[in-house]
């Protein structure tokens, strides 16, 4: 999946209004990021990559880039 495509999916699923979401945006600093966002990311990653993350694993991520690294860089292209 293209990185931009993933970022757009994240925006849609997390219902973020920030239009300038970038690879280096810190997810946890975005207004509205909460426990439901964690659950939404887990569901999105499961649906898109058939990979089951846990909330504990997500507690370690900060930026969208770190989330993509957790999912596996091999899944993404420029």
């Amino acid at each position: 999946m293209k990185k931009d495509e993933f970022i757009n999916l994240l925006k849609e699923v997390l219902e973020f209004t920030d239009k300038n979401l970038k690879e280096n945006s810190n997810l946890k600093e975005i207004e509205g990021f909460d426990s439901m966002s964690v659950m939404a990311i887990i569901a999105l990653v499961d649906e898109s990559f058939s990979k089951r993350l846990t909330a504990q694993q997500l507690s370690g991520i900060t930026t969208i880039r770190s989330l993509m690294e957790l999912i596996g860089s091999e899944h993404f292209s420029e």
């Binding site: 426990s35 964690v38 659950m39 887990i42 569901a43 846990t54 909330a55 504990q56 507690s59």
Partner: peptide
């Protein structure tokens, strides 16, 4: 279910 929500929750 617990694995999908933060520990605080």
């Amino acid at each position: 279910f617990f694995s999908t929500i933060p520990e605080e929750s």
